[in-house]
Write a protein that binds this DNA or RNA. Structure first.
Length: 111
DNA sequence: GCCGTGACTCGCA
DNA sequence: CTGCGAGCCACGG
């Protein structure tokens, strides 16, 4: 299990209609930082549900917001004008994921 | 193995 | 409210 796969796997576990941030994922992994999560998603090229991962303020760069909006609408994700309403949509792996699921996704990455 | 890069974050002006 | 700067660290060259 490497860091990259763990990121992709964790992103894949985000429930429909919810979202999390680059930072929360990084925190759940216990290693790397937000930029690494972003780098992995960028490289994955749409092979995962990347639209459920947003910045700490609930927005994405404009180009990505345009592509993500249809998904948010289809999934009923709580939105604001600029992006997502994280006070309602936020899904934190550490809190909303069962320990078993979390450890399965990390597969021994976090201490 | 060193080096530039970036879909980030946070504090401060 | 907006903007800037420094810290961040795995990935690919």
């Amino acid at each position: 299990m490497d860091h990259e796969s763990a990121v992709l796997e964790l992103v894949d576990l985000i429930p429909s209609g919810r979202a999390t941030t680059y930072g929360r994922i990084a925190a759940a992994l216990g290693s790397g930082g937000p930029r690494q999560v972003a780098a992995v998603l960028a490289r994955s090229g749409g092979a995962v549900t990347w639209w459920r991962v947003v910045r700490a303020d609930g927005t994405l760069p404009p180009a990505l917001t345009d592509r993500a909006r249809p998904h948010w609408l289809a999934e009923g994700t709580p939105r604001t004008e600029r992006g997502l309403d994280l006070s309602q949509a936020l899904w934190d792996p550490c809190l909303d994921l069962s320990p078993a699921e979390l450890s399965a996704a990390l597969d021994g990455m976090a201490p």
